[in-house]
């Protein structure tokens, strides 16, 4: 059984984002890169499937810059068997990334039985690659998944929709599942795992190797800018219990008379 996990490397959630000089992307020089948080759930799910099916092979695939391979090494330290890196710029669009992931899976020579991804990357927040990749691979897929069971060749996946309701799907492998937070609790990489990961195979391809060119771009970004700052608001001190009723009454009044919201 071959499991492919697609991961992206993204700026840490604490990162303060600033546009670069020509506003074509953000300044990336001093960013701390991490594995996309939703992808950790995908890696963990692959490893849980491998635990139940010891013959399974888990390959982790990433499309992105080579400035470091943190996300792939982390996934292998957690227990993935091998990795593929497709070298690309950090602001590739979803269509090109999906095509590159498909190209890398094809090039691996292994037939994918299960493809796992995070539901979205927290950099461009597009929430598109899992859906496009499934279409390109010709696989059924379910996204925003918080529950996963594999029995034989049947996957049962719980998709979270508006307001926390769940849609329960069944599909046969080969299929693709995009993980949401809550699917499982990702393990930490152990020290022996980190040492072992250094010796695990990491194949490296260019975009051209996997059949992707500039002609595959579908979405163009420009004019990166910071959102407009709000003017300073009004602040009221209500630490003193005697003042609380008056302050709250005033704020609620302002919500009607000034903000005209209630």
């Amino acid at each position: 059984m071959n499991i492919f996990v697609c991961v992206k490397q993204v700026p840490d959630t604490e990162t303060k984002v600033t546009p670069n000089s020509d506003k074509s992307f953000i300044e990336t020089a001093s960013i701390k890169w991490i594995m996309n948080p939703y992808d950790e759930f995908a890696v963990e799910q692959a490893l849980l499937v491998k635990q139940a099916n010891p013959a399974a092979n888990v390959t982790v695939v990433r499309v992105g810059s080579v400035k470091d391979t943190e996300a792939l090494r982390t996934a292998m330290a957690m227990g993935a068997d091998d990795a593929i890196l497709v070298e690309a710029v950090d602001n590739l669009d979803s269509y090109s990334i999906a095509k590159a992931l498909k190209g890398a899976i094809d090039k691996s020579g292994k037939k994918a039985d299960l493809v796992l991804t995070g539901k979205q990357a927290i950099d461009d927040d597009c929430l598109q690659v899992p859906q496009i990749l499934a279409q390109m691979l010709g696989m059924p897929s379910v996204a925003v998944v918080v529950g996963f069971e594999l029995t034989g060749t049947t996957v049962k996946a719980k998709r979270e929709v508006e307001g926390g309701a769940l849609e329960v799907y069944e599909m046969a492998t080969p299929c693709l599942v995009a993980a949401n937070k809550g699917l499982n609790t990702p393990r930490y990489a152990s020290l022996p795992g980190i040492m072992k990961a250094k010796k695990k195979p990491l194949a490296q391809y260019s975009l051209a190797d996997v059949g992707v060119s500039e002609a595959d771009r579908r979405v163009k970004y420009s004019s990166f800018q910071l959102p407009p700052e709000k003017p300073a608001g009004k602040k009221f001190d209500a630490m003193d219990a005697a003042k609380q009723a008056a302050v709250v009454s005033q704020v609620v009044g302002l919500l009607r008379t000034e903000a005209k919201i209630i």
Binding site: V17, Y95, D123, R218, K220, S222, L226, P227
Partner: peptide, 16 residues
Amino acid sequence: RPLFAGKCLAKVELTG
């Protein structure tokens, strides 16, 4: 559209 959860905004155009 906002990117990075709204930490910045960008212009988005479609092609193809």
